[in-house]
Write a protein that binds this DNA or RNA. Structure first.
Length: 595
RNA sequence: GCGGUCGUAGCUCAGAUGGAUAGAGUAUCGGCCUCCGAAGCCGAGGGUCGUGGGUUCGAGUCCCGCCGACCGCACCA
């Protein structure tokens, strides 16, 4: 709602009026762009070139005609025709000066837009299987999703953040089995631990805690556990499934305890990790409830009624090829258990039924082939698949000492999100994760992220904020009065450059929200920090001239406001002072190299 | 093989609806602290935007071919 200045619409109206002399202009929308070069003015308009073709006239002539009939404006200094027919517009300082008080009055709402129009949007992200600690790949999804959610909220959407808990299915059974096998070993019931079970130390830790809590209540003879199994070498998956079946049979009702304990431990661990990372969810949605509530039956029946389900080889198939998929997909297996895909159809139909105007899924890029399938199913069920947007996030590759820090999931030797946060800190992690376009591979430079030098963009931006705080603190006056300061003295080129940058923020937020691109906020913050630092070097703020002093302080207070909001969108703190000492422990952590 | 994503400075990457001389950081080189925090500022060099065509007043951006990289192609999740 808070537009700092109707500046652009004011100028657009001027051009609309001037262009109306040409009949062809009625269907034309006037576009004003910010030229890259300062010598091209504050804004440039290309309407003359667009009109020239239809009019069959020289674009520069058309430009001249438009300029001649531009209504007078007290904000415009001058206009000129340039290049092939651009009209460059130079504004008076007054056009920009009001940006400072307007920003201050808007407060935390500055830059919040009307793009979302109060529409309800749900963003689902992370949604990692609770089968072990979150790793650095999940971290990127978490940072991206959380920043995107903040961004959409600032752009005027009502946002709900959701985590889909995959608490049903084979992976969870494997985790439960892995835990139980470690537990059995504590009672000297040794079963060879399968290579395709979960190897991590956290599994043994869970077994320890079950043993400590319940002693040998869940102990069973190893000989029974391994009875009647396919060979582990020849059929590893069959071997594993056999173990799971034996576990369920031998434990009976107790299996649910082991399964639930493991799931809750891992889910709780992930939740703590994310909370410390500043990533908070409004809703944790259980996949299991979809099975239990009959929503999956209902979804499949819905598809069936529309004639998109057929039976073959004892399974039920969804004819997804009718909706652009490469092959048809099974929804109900031969063994009577629904596939993950079937649950996902029900889940997405349920999202729509919960009243969201828009649904955004954040997925790992390796799932891109899954999109057409889900959208096809939604269409087949009679839903509007266009309300679903899938944002893909590519994997992050860590670099340390210029070399790739390899992670191999099989051996359980991967860098966890918790380790990353401990090494570089939450602020650097959040910032570096969203510094790249989400659908691009990310090279995460650990050394740069934790460096306390000017190389580090996080510190560069935070320092700009801290510098402003420091100046205002030295001044010691009443900051609330700065919004009322007389700002007509602001005319230094560097002051105007900063004002222009502040004025861009609302457009930047809207564009970033529209494109689901929080990285552009990160780039914007680097830009505004650069303008602030340049101004800091060019002008002194605490000068004797009281009027000039207040004007400049109001300007940097406005810059601080934008820095705070922008850093907040990315989940990065805006410290009032920078301290090197605090980071000493991080330096220690970095010495502990992983193999 | 089929489908998808991508190729921009030595390196890491930005480049909204097609716009003027393609930008930033880093690295390299040279300057700036009696003054609000030098985690800063100013300047220099560095490019066939993978490649060949096409569309038009205008293409890094849109279309096609080729080369190269990555991802996906389960009754896993």
């Amino acid at each position: 709602m808070v537009r700092p200045q109707p500046l652009k619409s004011h100028l657009t109206a001027l051009f609309q009026h001037a262009a109306s002399q040409f009949a062809q202009a009625e269907h034309l929308s006037i576009e004003l762009e910010r030229p890259k070069q300062a010598s091209h003015g504050d804004f440039a308009c290309n309407v003359a070139m667009q009109l020239a073709k239809a009019l069959k006239r020289n674009p520069r002539e058309v430009a001249q005609a438009i300029i001649s009939s531009l209504p007078a404006s007290d904000l415009v200094e001058k206009t000129e025709i340039a290049g092939p027919g651009f009209i460059n517009i130079f504004l008076k300082p007054a056009a920009w000066q009001n940006v400072a008080p307007q920003t201050l009055r808007a407060g935390n709402a500055y830059g919040s837009g009307e793009l979302g129009q109060g529409l309800k949007v749900q963003i689902e992200f992370v949604s990692a299987n609770p089968t072990g600690p979150l790793h650095v790949g999940h971290g990127r999804g978490a940072a991206f999703g959380a920043s995107l959610a903040n961004l959409l909220a600032h752009a005027g959407y009502q946002v709900q953040r959701e985590y889909y808990v995959n608490d049903a299915g084979r992976q969870m059974d494997i985790l439960a089995l892995s835990t139980w096998l470690r537990y059995l070993a504590l009672g000297n019931q040794f079963v060879p631990f399968p290579a395709n079970a979960y190897q991590g130390d956290y599994v043994s830790a869970m077994a320890d805690s079950i043993f400590a809590l319940h002693g040998d209540r869940y102990m069973r003879p190893a000989a029974d556990v391994v009875s009647d199994l396919p060979d582990a070498a020849g059929d590893p998956d069959g071997h594993l499934d056999g173990l799971i079946a034996n576990a369920k049979r031998l434990l009976g009702a107790d299996y649910a305890y082991v399964h639930g304990h493991a799931m809750e431990e891992q889910l709780g661990d992930g939740r703590n990790d994310l909370t410390e990372f500043g990533v908070i969810f409004d809703c944790w949605f259980s996949e299991k409830t979809l099975h239990e509530s009959g929503l999956i039956d209902k979804a499949v029946k819905q598809l069936q009624q529309h004639g998109h389900i057929y039976e073959q080889d004892g399974a039920l198939w969804f004819r997804s090829t009718a909706f652009g998929d490469e092959k048809d997909r099974v929804v109900l297996r031969e063994n009577g258990i629904y596939t993950y895909f079937a649950a996902d159809i029900a889940y997405h139909l349920n999202k729509f039924e919960r009243g969201f105007d828009r649904v955004i899924d954040v997925w790992g890029a390796d799932h891109h082939g899954y999109i057409s399938r889900v959208k096809g199913a939604l269409t087949a069920a009679g839903a509007d698949a266009d309300r679903l947007t899938v944002a893909l996030v590519q994997f992050a590759v860590l670099y340390r000492n210029g070399q790739k820090a390899q992670m191999s999931t099989r051996s359980g030797q991967y860098v966890t999100l918790r380790e990353l946060r401990a090494e570089v800190g939450n602020d650097a992690a959040r910032f570096f994760y969203v510094l790249r376009k989400s659908d691009q591979h990310l090279d995460f430079d650990l050394d740069l992220a934790k460096s306390q030098s000017n190389d580090n963009p996080v510190y560069y931006i935070q320092y700009a904020h801290a510098r402003i705080c420091s100046v205002l603190s030295s001044w010691g006056g009443n900051e609330a009065e700065l919004a009322e300061a007389d700002i007509t003295r602001l005319d230094h080129p560097q002051e105007l450059a900063l004002l222009r940058r502040i004025a861009e923020f609302p457009d930047t937020v809207n564009a970033a929200a529209r494109d689901l691109a929080p990285h552009s906020i990160a780039y914007y913050l680097k830009d505004i920090a650069a303008e602030l630092h340049a101004l800091y070097a060019a002008c002194q703020f605490l000068v004797d001239d009281e009027e000039l002093k207040l004007a400049r302080l109001s300007l940097i207070a406005a810059a601080r406001q934008v820095l705070r909001i922008g850093l907040g969108l990315l989940g990065v703190s805006a410290p009032e002072r920078m301290s090197r000492e605090e980071n000493a422990r991080d330096a220690d952590a970095s010495n502990q190299n992983r193999a």
